[in-house]
């Protein structure tokens, strides 16, 4: 029993962690390229979840069912999240490319507030019931107390997304351009890389991953509101910092560490303080390793 409890906490920690990792990737990719904390990234996650809910709601009413809803709602949600991510960068960050560091960060906080309240006013301040898009897997029934079907789907989907991202960055042309821009933006521009396009694509990819996270969490938890992006964003950013911001494997590791720490602390100590543990871990790691778990220590250039 003790062992199964632990296994349960462990699986739910991994599940949580892989969602954090999915969102954290967006933070870390953007940070790696333009050194900006995209504070509104959590809102993109929320928008992804909301569009999925709206589309699946409409489709259910018009008589669609099962897998077709999942596919259509998922696809449209991803397209919308990408569009919002792209527009966000164009409006709030691109004009501030050469401004002092604090300016785009404040602009990002402004965008976050704007998007939250936009959804609140256009839709509702209340929690909405999220349709169960992930089907129950019959095979898993006997093990339901350890790993649910939703958890399994989340783990597999996030793993696949991360593998796809790694392959993209490693082998695709745009991935190479992204790495070049991350190394040296001016040099990248000189060798003919369209840096603006690279940045846009980075935001789009990050937004897609966030939307996937949003849809998965929505159907896992079963309800969403306009505010879910804030905490998820903060946690994911914590994960990104934990792993070493700007570092892609770091974001995944940071997400998993954070998810596990929270889940175990909630299980064994107190669930009321799980957020305190999450930030406690962050502060502790930053004191011991100021550039995160996998981040390189940067010597100030003098």
């Amino acid at each position: 029993m003790e062992y199964e409890n632990f296994l349960g906490y462990f699986v739910s920690g991994l599940t949580r962690g892989s969602i954090y990792a999915l969102i954290a990737l967006g933070y870390t990719m953007v940070y790696g390229i333009i050194q900006l904390i995209n504070f509104a990234h959590g809102e993109i996650y929320m928008i992804g979840a909301f569009v999925a809910l709206i589309v699946s709601g409409v489709l259910t009413i018009y008589g669609f069912s099962g897998v077709s809803i999942l596919v259509l709602a998922g696809l449209i949600a991803i397209i919308y999240a990408a569009a919002y991510g792209y527009t966000l960068e164009r409006i709030a960050y691109r004009p501030l490319r050469s401004a002092p560091r604090l300016s785009p960060l404040i602009s990002a906080i402004g965008m976050s507030l704007f998007l939250q309240n936009y959804v609140l006013l256009a839709q509702t301040p209340d929690f909405l019931r999220f349709p169960q898009l992930i089907p129950e897997i019959a095979l898993l029934q006997p093990y339901a107390h350890v790993v649910g079907s939703a958890e399994l789907v989340i783990l597999i989907t996030s793993a696949l997304s991360m593998i796809a991202l790694t392959l993209l960055i490693k082998y695709a042309k745009i991935g190479k351009a992204m790495r070049a821009t991350q190394q040296d933006m001016i040099m990248a521009r000189l060798v003919g890389i369209d840096v603006d396009r690279v940045i846009s694509v980075t935001f789009i990819i990050g937004s897609i991953l966030a939307a996937i996270g949003g849809i998965l969490v929505g159907s896992y938890i079963g309800q969403i509101n306009f505010y879910i992006g804030f905490m998820a964003g903060v946690k994911a950013f914590t994960a990104a910092v934990l792993g070493g911001i700007g570092n892609i494997p770091g974001a995944v590791l940071g997400g998993l560490v954070l998810g596990l720490a929270e889940s175990l602390a909630a299980g064994y100590i107190s669930s009321a303080y799980e957020d305190v543990f999450a930030f406690g871990v962050l502060v502790l790691i930053l004191i011991l390793r100021p550039s995160g778990l996998l981040g390189k220590a940067i010597k100030p250039k003098v």
Partner: peptide
């Protein structure tokens, strides 16, 4: 604890402190 942190890390840690304060007061 945050003396050594650079600007962006500072943002997230202070945000965390703010949230922790509320959680502690609540619980």
């Amino acid at each position: 604890p945050i003396l050594r942190l650079r600007g962006d890390y500072l943002a997230i840690v202070t945000l965390g402190f703010g949230l922790i304060a509320k959680i502690v007061l609540e619980n």
